[in-house]
Amino acid sequence: MKFRDTYIGKIFNGTRSLLTGLGVTLKEFFTKKVTEQYPENRKTLKISDRHRAMLYMPLDENGNNKCIACGLCQSACPNGTITVKTKTVTDEETGKSKKVLLEYTYDLGCCMFCQLCVNACPKDAIAFNNHFENAVFDRSKLVLKLNK
């Protein structure tokens, strides 16, 4: 029989294990607290870069987007959140007809933030940002037009 299984050994072993637990919580007592005091700390609030709050379309300085109106995002969306309206224009130089984006509608109220649309996009034309303060008083305000 080992010492730690005896009556006296159990006392010492138990005390040691209790002290280990106390040490862990004491360390926790003095660590910086993780609570975010939200409305007060809006200026300094840091949301994780990977957070998915709202779909947006990155635009360059001229207001152009990278969307090629392929509709892959629309078919990838499980909730039918995205509607891509297109029109066909004929290129004057080559004479070939080409689909261009007319209106990119995104219904935030239906979105479940699965990121399948972003993954489906071949041109990285859409992405999620972390503007998470999305509360509005009317559901129709949640339907957004993403392109200019």
Binding site: E28, F29, T35
Partner: peptide, 11 residues
């Protein structure tokens, strides 16, 4: 209790 759980408690 809050400090031991890494929180701030009532504020």
């Amino acid at each position: 209790c809050a400090a031991f759980q890494c929180r701030l408690g009532p504020m």
